[in-house]
């Protein structure tokens, strides 16, 4: 229990308290030095550190990205697929089938823009800040009200490609996504 609490607090401190000074988009680009080639694909692991959970909830899956769409496919523990095509976002799971999910668009857009290295588009919705002891990380704070209503901030790390995305919601819950490109 103490171990879980310590991890939770550390992660929270990392994403919220470690928020550094604002940096320009060029500095953010330089820090991440993203080299994106489409189509791209890889695996992901997601850890949910919610205050209410007894232990972190881990799920995993794979992603595919090309010019037309982003497919975010959770394979375990329960299959689920998030697809973003042009302006539309769809969610599929075994129980409910495929349905449009406009509420998931802010997240889908964020992932798409990060994976494609489109920091210019992200700059419309976020301000960037440095991470003093982590040269390959950039903090992002939402400018748009719709994203800020759910998320307090994001921490994105990587060199040439994104390796981790840490999301902190307004209740202090943290979601840590680790990405491993497979090509």
């Amino acid at each position: 229990m103490i171990h879980r609490f310590t991890v939770f607090v550390c992660l929270w401190l990392l994403t919220v308290c470690a928020y550094g000074k604002d940096i320009s988009i060029d500095t953010a680009k330089a820090r991440l030095a993203l080299e994106v080639e489409l189509p791209a694909q890889g695996d992901f692991t997601q850890e949910k550190h919610l205050a209410i959970l007894k232990h972190p909830f881990v799920s995993s899956g794979r992603y595919r990205l090309n010019q037309e769409q982003l497919v975010w496919e959770t394979l375990a523990p329960a299959p689920q697929t998030l697809t973003m095509e042009k302006q539309n976002v769809f969610l599929w799971d075994e129980a409910a089938g495929r349905r449009e999910m406009p509420q998931a668009k802010p997240f889908a857009s964020l992932i798409q823009q990060l994976l494609t290295g489109n920091l210019d588009a992200l700059a419309n919705s976020f301000t960037f800040a440095d991470e003093p002891n982590r040269p390959n990380c950039v903090s992002m704070q939402p400018k748009s009200r719709s994203i800020a209503s759910v998320f307090a901030g994001f921490l994105v790390c990587g060199k040439s490609h994104i390796t981790t995305i840490t999301m902190t919601d307004n209740d202090g819950n943290i979601t840590l996504i680790s990405l491993t490109p497979t090509r």
């Binding site: 205050a51 909830f57 799920s59 959770t74 689920q80 509420q103 998931a104 759910v150 209740d171």
Partner: peptide, 19 residues
């Protein structure tokens, strides 16, 4: 159903109501 909902990445509904 429970695992599917919990697996959803950044679901505003889960974040807002699970506690």
């Amino acid at each position: 159903y429970f695992y599917t909902r919990l697996s959803e990445t950044a679901s505003p509904f889960v974040s807002a109501s699970m506690a």
